[in-house]
């Protein structure tokens, strides 16, 4: 039912990965990314192994490859930056297909590309198997300040309400014959944004009133205790532990 949520990152399922407590998965993902970043860039095979590890997790989580690869598209702007590096970096140069490229630039580009892709893939996998709400409770469990968690959870709750308000305002504008076509109409759009801000601000006040009326005193009450067993932590540790082994091999070989 949670899949009815408009957050397309999440993919509803009942795999063992879905079932792990969110804070275990968060910790595992973070540890994995740290290990990947700590791997020397020259050991190209290590990154191949990391990708295999992630693919294995995706298989266990029954997340299709196509779904995951599409999520990787978010990386494109950063890749564009990596592509530039071999052209602009200084130092020793090599000829590739008639182009003069910097060797250190090539290594730098590879470094950004490989580590970035693995990091994004790991995060996309986390997001695909963990509901946004669960991620927030996981973060709280891991010691993120409750205030930040509250702000984030209100964003989740009211994102749709505010988008809806924006859509209604847009319908109202167009119903009176307004089409935003060029720079001359930016003023109208800016006023819409301002009105939306005021409305959201006022809604915030009303929500606060409703919270105070139900006994809120500044801290969110604990409703769901998320606790992880030792076994669950052990399962979650499989990915970063395997990655760590690869990393250690990369440094020693």
């Amino acid at each position: 039912m949670g899949a009815g949520h408009a957050h397309t990152l999440y993919r509803h399922g009942h795999s063992p990965v879905h079932a792990l407590p969110p804070h275990c998965k968060l910790a595992a993902t973070f540890a994995f990314v740290v290990v990947v970043v700590a791997t020397p860039r020259e050991q190209m095979w290590a990154f191949g192994l990391y990708a295999v590890l992630l693919a294995a997790v995706a298989a266990v989580a029954r997340v299709p490859a196509g779904f995951l690869l599409r999520r990787l598209l978010i990386e494109v702007p950063f890749v564009a930056f990596a592509v530039l590096m071999p052209f602009v970096a200084e130092g020793e140069r090599v000829e590739v297909l008639g182009l003069s490229l910097s060797v250190s630039g090539l290594w730098g580009a590879w470094n950004v590309l490989a580590k970035g892709t693995l990091g994004v893939a790991a995060s996309a996998l986390l997001a695909a198997t963990t509901e946004l709400r669960a991620l927030l409770t996981g973060l709280q469990r891991l010691g993120l300040p409750p205030l930040l968690v509250q702000i984030a959870s209100f964003m989740v709750r009211y994102g749709d309400v505010i988008t809806d308000e924006l859509r209604r305002m847009s319908v109202a504008r167009r119903s009176r014959g307004f089409e935003a076509t060029g720079i001359r109409h930016w003023g109208v759009l800016a006023r819409t944004a301002g009105a939306l801000f005021i409305r959201s601000y006022e809604r915030g006040e009303r929500v606060h009133l409703a919270m105070v009326s139900r006994g809120w005193t500044g801290v969110m009450p604990v409703i769901d205790e998320v606790a992880a067993t030792r076994t669950q932590w052990a399962y979650a540790a499989v990915l970063p532990a395997a990655a760590l082994a690869v990393c250690v091999m990369g440094w020693t070989l």
Partner: peptide, 26 residues
């Protein structure tokens, strides 16, 4: 107090958590 706009009253991510909010705060 049940406020006029339920979107103001229901501020938690799920119905269950929202109903639990008051008693949990107590």
């Amino acid at each position: 107090i049940v406020f006029q706009d339920p979107d103001d009253q229901l501020f938690m991510p799920t119905v269950r958590e929202d109903v639990a909010f008051g008693p949990a705060a107590a």
